[in-house]
């Protein structure tokens, strides 16, 4: 939330002053201490290095990557049942231990960390896609 708000204000500031720098700014390392002080766009711009724009993940791309990952997972035997709505245990025949491995593979694929509690709640392809789309850090 906070991050998107910052990005949005940064984008507006960049549009107002096109010479400033590239439109999107991604801070190199942001510590929580610093964040509160960087709310004003001008101060924000001086404190960051600008990288190219982050396009964000599309639903199709996320789905495709998760499907590929499941296709390559050795415990999924029947790939014909693999669809966007597949349930890990009901359709793909994975047990809870396999699900843990799938979720960890997803973590690795999108370079994020999923806390145990939320990892336990991911039971289907659809669920995983929704979760990844809700993560601003996923890429």
């Amino acid at each position: 939330m906070f991050r998107t708000a910052i990005l949005r204000s940064a984008r507006q500031a960049a549009r107002a002053a096109p010479r400033c720098q590239t439109p999107i700014a991604r801070p190199v390392a942001r510590s929580p201490l610093f964040q509160s002080k960087q709310i004003t766009p001008t101060a924000y711009f001086q404190a960051v290095r600008c990288y190219s724009a982050h396009a964000g993940l599309g639903k199709d791309e996320v789905l495709g990557r998760i499907m590929d990952l499941l296709k390559n997972f050795d415990k999924v035997q029947d790939t014909s049942k693999l669809t966007a709505d597949s349930h890990f245990s009901n359709d793909l025949g994975l047990d809870s231990l396999d699900t843990v491995e799938v979720v960890m593979a997803i973590e690795e694929e999108f370079s994020i960390e999923i806390p145990d509690k939320e990892a336990d709640a991911i039971h289907s392809v659809k669920h995983a896609v929704d979760y990844i789309l809700a993560q601003p850090d996923a890429h």
């Binding site: 809870s96 843990v100 145990d116 990892a119």
Partner: peptide, 10 residues
């Protein structure tokens, strides 16, 4: 058990 499995896989 699942948490331990995760730790092992990590």
């Amino acid at each position: 058990v699942l948490a331990l499995y995760r730790q092992c896989m990590k």
